[in-house]
Design a protein around this nucleic acid. Sequence first.
DNA 1: AAACGGATGGGCT
DNA 2: GCCCATCCGTTTG
Length: 183
Amino acid sequence: MKKPTVEVAKSLLGSVLVHRTPEGETAGRIVETEAYLFDDPACHGFRGKTPRNAPMFGPPGHAYIYFIYGMYHCFNVVTAPAGIGEAVLIRALEPLRGIDLMQKRRPHAKAIHQLCNGPGKLVLAMGITPHLNGMSLTKSPLTIQKGENSRFTIVSCGRIGIKNGQELPLRFYIEGNAFVSKK
DNA sequence: AAACGGATGGGCT
DNA sequence: GCCCATCCGTTTG
């Protein structure tokens, strides 16, 4: 049995995240992801299901959004079959549409490439809020669409900002892309 | 260029 | 009480 979550993390690169809100539409190309696996000490689901991580144990293709460091949220795509707590964290986007709106939501960003180059940043720029937690990514205002065919090389390395499982090569990004959070 | 610390609050041992 | 899948401004070398 393979690890489909790792495959999903890679295949999400190049796809487009779209959010339609009353304020307008924003969209960005996914350029950086991280996989979190059920047998992985860094994964929120590692110690079993709790009220907070419950969406991770739900059906794939849904959102898992969690609150972190007292002020930010991170957005994940649930990947594994229901009952297995795995997900892919979206870490960076290349802004495509609604850049004006993104700039309005992120007044601190001084340049386009600072808008979505981090998990907390893209959540703010895209207007993603916790009410989307647990919702389907095909039936909610937040969706993921196929990107245009483009060739790129995927780099894999250790994940960012975690203590346990740092050495596991579960972070993936598009080689040479200027919108990645960190080299 | 890198290192550091403050902001800020929910979750869980 | 301590830990956090972060961000940003400031300090340091």
